[in-house]
């Protein structure tokens, strides 16, 4: 996973709530067995509408998605994260995220930033007024900055550290292989196996 410290880029406002992962990447795209090529599937049904905000050329190249509440609800498909990243997004800002989506994002280095709904609204309004406005998302300082707006966001220390170092979770857990083996020795004898 790529390390994330701070990112400055243009932002695109997505004024919808409950953007479930079926909308982010429809199921038909999930048949792929590779990890690449999902950018064309991103919001593919909505992108057929010329009025959809991602089709607006003023937002071309934006790397921060600013969405209504409950972004990434529904299906656990990590393909939603891959699609957002491969399209060019580094950050998603929303008042609330689906738990599994938020987890998947932090495993991949896509930063989910939770801000209060009124602050999300201000960011959306600001980038609607000036699509060229640069937004800085600073994980080190836990801040989103846009013009005069400075909004603090919360993220737990451990996840922040992992993201800033770009660390692989599996490698971290395998450092505790002895603990896992010890736990396994104490498991209840009736627990089932699949064989």
């Amino acid at each position: 996973m790529d390390a994330f410290t701070t990112h400055t880029g243009r932002a695109v406002p997505l004024r919808r709530s409950n953007v479930d992962t079926d909308q982010i990447i429809p199921a038909v795209w999930l048949k792929q067995v590779s990890r690449t090529g999902f950018e064309n599937g991103l919001f593919s049904a909505w992108r057929e509408d010329p009025a959809f905000v991602l089709n607006d050329p003023v937002y071309e190249g934006a790397s921060i998605l600013v969405s209504g509440p409950d972004f990434g609800t529904g299906s656990s498909r990590e393909h939603a994260v891959w699609a957002l990243q491969q399209y060019g997004f580094r950050v998603v800002i929303s008042a609330r995220f689906g738990d599994i989506f938020r987890n998947n994002s932090t495993k991949m280095g896509l930063l989910p930033v939770v801000l209060p709904a009124d602050v999300v609204e201000r960011v959306q309004a600001a980038v609607e007024a000036d699509p060229a406005a640069e937004v800085t998302v600073d994980l080190v300082e836990r801040q989103v900055r846009l013009g005069d707006l400075v909004a603090e966001f919360e993220i737990d220390d451990y996840t922040r550290w992992r993201l800033m170092e770009g660390l692989d979770d599996i490698g971290l857990t395998l450092r505790h292989a002895d603990d896992i083996a010890e736990y396994e020795n104490g498991r209840q004898r009736w627990l089932p196996t699949t064989v």
Binding site: E78, N103, D156, D169, A177, I180
Partner: peptide
Amino acid sequence: AFGIGTSEVEHVLATQTLPAY
């Protein structure tokens, strides 16, 4: 019982554990 993404599937395959709050 809970749903996980593909990175976590890989994590469970490799370690039979998951880090979680």
